[in-house]
């Protein structure tokens, strides 16, 4: 049982972080808190992708040779580079979405003068908008 838990510990970490982020997105009333939860969630997904590319006993995917040798390269001694590439893109896109979300948040604050979800809903109900 303990062996099973330890052999897949990266998945437990990512599940815990994902649950924290999801709870912040659903349960918290403040909009900045929701956004922080979204960031935690995204980091958890990226952690999941990075951790499935790990090979035990392998090194970083940078070849130390001269680059034009024809010797055979042992695949098992280099970490899988493909998840890293995809996650580089994902990090930059996540920052872009965060920027857009923060701009929207500033607009909401200018209009309603608050960032609490329930107060915004109350104001919208009172003004009939």
């Amino acid at each position: 049982m303990l062996d099973y838990v330890i052999s897949k510990y990266n998945f437990w970490i990512y599940i815990i972080l994902m649950m924290i982020g999801l709870y912040a997105m659903i349960g918290k009333k403040n909009l900045v808190k929701k956004l922080i939860g979204m960031n935690v969630f995204q980091s958890a997904i990226i952690l999941f992708y990075v951790s499935i590319g790990v090979k035990a006993g392998a090194t970083v995917p940078i070849l130390s040779g001269h680059g034009h040798g024809h010797e055979a390269i042992d695949v098992a001694s280099y970490i899988n580079p493909l998840p890293h590439v995809l996650m580089l893109t994902a990090i930059v896109v996540s920052i872009a979405t965060t920027g857009i979300a923060l701009a929207t948040l500033i607009l909401i604050y200018r209009k309603y003068n608050t960032l609490e979800e329930d107060e915004i809903l109350k104001i919208r109900k009172e003004t009939g908008a």
Binding site: V50, V54, V60, L88
Partner: peptide
């Protein structure tokens, strides 16, 4: 975990 490029990007961008 060996993902140095991702770590660079996260430290600067994230």
């Amino acid at each position: 975990m060996g993902a140095v490029d991702v770590a660079f990007t996260e430290a600067s961008v994230g």
